[in-house]
């Protein structure tokens, strides 16, 4: 190791430089935005001093949107787990033309612009009871949009293990279907389920296209509120809002990453 690290050539430094450059490209705007949310007066710059005033303002005005976003995200996660894991299982156990077709159909809401999907939802279900004014309407849109990500993530893991034989092994020991599913299928797909959950949560919290059409003034989610504040309020408030968004999403991402690492076999 010693000799290797002593002989770092030009290639190493070029690669390091490039990597750092890409990282900077991605993180600098975020840091700038977060800083803007903490600056007393953005047009004056940092020398106007740092303040939590804007963050407080955001929490006062928009805390409802934050809670609603979390509520929808976790409800969406629950729905995609209940729908997506069995769907992936069915697709994995019965591969064939129909399975591929179903997979393609599931991807449709991702391929079609969110606005179009939302419009279709409104045209079709907008008149059903109180659905149009309920947060459940947004939930439906989010489930449509995120379900394929859950299915894909779980399916990828199911394809990499010999699920059929594992299940036959469990069956030969007397386990019926439900027991096999709970004790063999689910635990061995854990990494895929966690990866899918991660995707679903982040996608749902950040979803704007669909939500923008589906929301009502009483069912505003965080990204919709963000757009509002950018459009109509001081840039500091919009930036503080972004900061709140980060504070909310980053810990849950780290938590889920940690969980999925623990689920992986220690090789």
């Amino acid at each position: 190791m010693q000799t290797l690290s002593n002989r770092r050539g030009l290639g190493f430094w070029l690669q390091l430089g490039f990597t750092l450059l890409v990282c900077a490209l991605l993180t600098v705007p975020m840091v700038m935005s977060m800083l803007a949310g903490l600056t007393a007066n953005y047009f004056v710059g940092l020398k106007s001093g740092l303040t939590l005033r804007w963050v407080e303002e955001v929490l006062r005005v928009y805390s409802g949107t934050i809670l609603l976003s979390l509520q929808i995200a976790f409800a969406c996660l629950a729905c995609t787990l209940v729908l997506g894991v069995p769907t992936a299982y069915a697709l994995a156990r019965r591969p064939g033309r129909i399975a591929r077709l179903v997979e393609e159909l599931l991807m449709m809401p991702v391929a079609i612009p969110g606005l179009a999907t939302a419009l279709a939802l409104i045209v079709t279900y907008g008149g059903v009871g109180d659905l149009r004014s309920s947060w459940l309407f947004i939930l439906i849109g989010h489930v449509l949009f995120t379900l394929p990500f859950m299915v894909r993530a779980v399916l990828a893991v199911m394809g990499s293990i010999d699920l059929t034989t594992l299940e036959e092994g469990a069956a030969s020991l007397g386990a019926g279907f439900l027991r096999r599913f709970a004790t063999v299928v689910l635990p061995n797909c854990r990494s895929g389920i966690l990866a899918g959950s991660l995707m679903v949560l982040t996608l749902s919290v950040g979803e704007f296209n669909l939500t923008w059409l589906l929301h009502t003034p009483l069912t505003k989610t965080l990204p919709v509120g963000l757009a509002d504040s950018y459009a109509s309020l001081r840039i500091e408030i919009g930036s503080a809002y972004t900061l709140v968004f980060f504070l909310m999403i980053v810990p849950s991402l780290i938590l889920l990453q940690g969980l999925s690492k623990r689920g992986r076999p220690s090789v």
Binding site: D162, E168, A170
Partner: peptide, 20 residues
């Protein structure tokens, strides 16, 4: 009867041991 109700013991070529 399906396999789970036949009370057989089976050893598979790939062992089919549960990795979890």
């Amino acid at each position: 009867l399906p396999i789970e109700r036949r009370n057989v013991g089976m050893v598979f070529q790939s062992y089919a041991l549960f990795p979890n």
